[in-house]
């Protein structure tokens, strides 16, 4: 018999959820004060709240990245777009512009960055890796120019609310992420966008033959990915109340890609799993928080992360699973 997995085991979310749960249980049992949640200043406070709050940028980026990857592309520029949007937001906040301007202009810049990526990929036909690499490199440079090599500090409570505000004890940023996710879920599943994205990702040639306009779909997803990065940029900038063009969102594109892949969306494109990407982002942040909470030293951190990522990828690979079960069966048979 070929191994016949129960339906629950074949769910794209099963293994990543299991992993997340295991990580949390391990921490609650063995990491000092990990599971403690207190109420402080009228909101919940504790490591688990930190995981939720700090995973928001990766969740946002992962959402955009998931759609991009589903079309068979990739967006390396999100980290740089974060820096650009953060820099613009910080400069406007520092100079005392009204809140709508502080929010709208960075998001517009992020959207334009995304459209630019989409234009290069869909219209010009540059490979996504190369096309977004352009902005990945130049975007951070632009942000540095805007900031003049300094950390631009600001103090604007209404702007800072994005990362410091709480509603019913939970951080505002969580609601923001939930709203973006709900919007994406609705748009991709209640319109044909999701179907077309998957279709392009699975088979671009055949998609053209059924009349799907890949150009506009790709423009939409890259623009959206840019927008997500813009929102994440505002979040990360208000988090430290300053625009640190050199460091903000550094390597975050890798986390977003990782979250997407952990979530079950294949790098080759096709079927995508938004909820999976959210779980992926939570896993990445839980790891980071675990490592900080347990006081693991930095070089060890990277190794731990690598091991975890490899094991998740292996567990999700059907080839590995079948070989593993073959191995186990073989041993069982001989015993």
């Amino acid at each position: 018999m070929r191994q016949k997995l129960p339906d629950v085991l074949r769910s794209p979310y099963f293994w990543s959820l299991l992993f997340l749960a295991a990580l949390l249980i391990f921490n609650i049992l063995f990491t000092e004060r990990f599971g403690v949640i207190e109420v402080r200043d009228g909101h919940f406070y504790g490591n688990i709240m930190d995981i939720l709050r700090r995973s928001v940028p990766t969740v946002l980026l992962g959402t955009g990245m998931t759609l991009v990857i589903a079309t068979g592309g990739i967006d390396l520029s999100v980290g740089a777009v974060i820096a650009v949007s953060g820099a613009i937001g910080a400069l406007l906040a520092r100079d005392g512009y009204p809140l709508p301007v502080i929010i709208a202009l960075p998001l517009a810049a992020a959207l334009i960055s995304g459209v630019w990526n989409g234009f290069l990929v869909a219209k010009i036909g540059i490979q996504p890796f190369v096309a977004t690499l352009i902005l990945m490199v130049s975007g951070r440079g632009i942000a540095q120019l805007l900031c003049g090599g300094q950390i631009i500090k600001f103090s604007d409570p209404s702007f800072e609310y994005i990362s410091a505000g709480f509603i019913l004890g939970f951080p505002f940023s969580m609601y923001l992420a939930a709203a973006v996710l709900a919007a994406v879920q609705t748009v991709t599943r209640k319109t044909a966008l999701g179907l077309f994205i998957e279709s392009i990702g699975v088979n671009p040639a055949a998609s053209r033959c059924v009349g799907i306009n890949a150009t506009s779909i790709k423009l939409i997803v890259y623009a959206f990915s840019g927008l997500c990065a813009g929102i994440a940029g505002l979040l990360l900038t208000t988090e430290i109340r300053g625009a640190d063009a050199n460091n903000v969102g550094l390597n975050l594109e890798m986390d977003a890609i990782l979250a997407t892949v952990i979530g079950g969306t294949a790098m080759t494109g096709g079927k995508f799993y938004l909820a999976g990407s959210v779980i992926g982002a939570l896993i990445i942040q839980t790891l980071t928080t675990t490592i900080l909470a347990r006081g693991v030293t930095r070089p060890a951190t990277l190794v731990v992360k690598a091991i975890v990522v490899i094991s998740i990828s292996l567990i999700q690979s059907s080839v590995f699973r079948s070989q593993l079960s073959g191995l186990l069966a073989g041993r069982g048979g001989r015993a």
């Binding site: 004060r33 490591n47 430290i240 300053g242 640190d244 903000v248 900080l292 909470a293 030293t297």
Partner: peptide, 22 residues
């Protein structure tokens, strides 16, 4: 405890958050 914050504000904050929890 000593932990690296990579000379950045962002990581300095995140590491401090963990210290405070602990």
């Amino acid at each position: 405890e000593s932990q690296t914050g990579d000379f950045t504000m962002e990581l300095g904050k995140q590491v401090m958050e963990a210290f405070l929890k602990k």
